[in-house]
Amino acid sequence: MEVRHFGPMLRPLYSARRGVQMTGNTVWIKRLALALGAGLLTVAIGAQAAWPDKPIKIIATYQPGGTNDIMARLAADIWSKALQVPVLVENHPGSSGNLGTELVAKAKPDGYTLLAGTFGPITTSPTLYPNLPYDPAKDFAPVGILASVPNVIFVHPSLPVSNLAELVTLAKTRPEPLKFGIVYGGTPQFLVAQLRKTTGIELLEIPYKGGTSALNDLIGNHLDLYIDNLPAVLPQIRGGTVKVLAVASQARSPQLPDVPTTAEAGFPDVEVSAWHGILAPAGTPPAVVERLNQTLVQALHTPEVRARIEQQGGTVVADTPEQFQGFILSEIARWRQVILDNHITASN
């Protein structure tokens, strides 16, 4: 009985399959299917064209107050104005920046979750951490680099040294080693490795999850020595709560014109700069990545934003996604060789 009941509705489809002229029912079904398909296509195109239509989130991989956080908030300010949606910064410190980086690597690639990427989690972690749960070369769609920043070597004001040479002499002659704060995986770890290799000094490493905690401990006289990106420590240098000995860059910083470079201080092989950029999860629509890059680069070329970066001691980069990707690949290869040649691990 059920077959006889549905037979009249199915017969036109059977006839069409045999090549018989289609009935009105069949024509109506095909027209409905076409209309639905066209409607879905219009909705999909409209949804893509509407990006962004909700808040965007930038994951900073270190503690608030550090350079990674500063640059994330600069990018958030740029895009909130350019894209007319809220752009929020969330700090997810831990595992030398790898925790927050993994969150973005596994996030939905829709343009609403971005990474404030930097040296350690992107360029050195693949070698330092054999079981890294993400691949920086494959799991991200680079958007662009905001700036490169130099590192500075500084001490507590009570330490009886006024330059880098005196610090080395003190480290070699003092009975107990100088206490040095370190966040593994970042540029300061490699800078202090260069300093040790060049001078032969011994330091007592005190590990930290983020630079803000280490900086606070140095200000509180719980550490003797620390190295960090200039933007993170510039207010303390100006306020006199820390004493800077050298800038680890090829040229003096305009923000610290009286502070010598490491080369001028007699240590030309002690130099590592950091970079800070934005990445999206792999698979993010190219049109979204392109729009993010274009609005970022336009802002970086304005006198206002350029001045904000330079006042922090940084240098504007403003590259393309393709240039950023090439830079990442070259940096991974470069620092992998440095790590292997010098037997550097995530804890030394």
Rank of each mutant, 00 (worst) to 15 (best):
I206R: 14
I206G: 12
I206S: 09
I206C: 06
P207L: 11
P207H: 13
P207E: 10
Y208I: 10
K209G: 14
K209D: 15
G210R: 04
G210C: 06
G210Y: 00
G210I: 11
G210W: 05
G211R: 03
G211T: 14
T212D: 11
S213K: 12
A214P: 00
L215N: 08
N216D: 15
D217R: 10
D217V: 14
D217E: 14
L218S: 13
L218A: 09
L218Y: 02
L218M: 14
I219C: 15
I219H: 15
I219F: 12
I219P: 14
G220S: 15
G220L: 15
H222G: 15
L223M: 07
L223K: 03
L223R: 07
L223D: 06
L223F: 06
L223E: 01
D224V: 03
D224L: 00
L225W: 04
L225S: 03
L225T: 00
L225F: 03
L225M: 02
I227Q: 09
I227E: 11
I227K: 03
I227A: 09
I227L: 10
D228Y: 13
D228Q: 15
N229I: 07
N229P: 07
L230N: 01
L230P: 05
L230M: 08
L230H: 01
L230R: 02
P231H: 10
P231T: 07
A232R: 02
A232S: 15
A232L: 01
A232H: 04
V233H: 07
V233D: 04
P235H: 04
P235N: 06
P235W: 09
Q236C: 08
Q236D: 10
R238M: 06
R238E: 09
G239V: 11
G239P: 11
G240E: 02
G240K: 07
V242K: 01
K243S: 10
K243A: 12
V244C: 06
V244A: 03
V244H: 03
V244K: 00
L245S: 02
L245Y: 05
A246H: 05
A246D: 04
A246I: 08
A246T: 05
A246Q: 03
V247A: 11
V247H: 10
V247G: 11
A248L: 02
Q250W: 06
Q250L: 10
Q250G: 08
Q250P: 02
A251P: 07
A251C: 03
A251R: 11
A251F: 13
R252T: 02
R252K: 08
S253E: 08
P254C: 00
P254G: 00
P254T: 00
P254Y: 00
L256N: 07
L256G: 11
L256F: 10
L256T: 11
L256S: 10
L256E: 10
P257V: 01
P257F: 04
P257R: 09
D258K: 13
D258I: 01
D258Q: 12
D258E: 11
D258N: 14
V259K: 00
V259M: 00
V259H: 03
P260V: 01
P260D: 01
P260G: 04
T261M: 00
T261N: 03
T261V: 07
T262I: 02
T262F: 00
E264H: 02
E264F: 08
E264C: 03
E264R: 05
A265Y: 04
A265Q: 02
A265H: 01
A265N: 08
A265K: 10
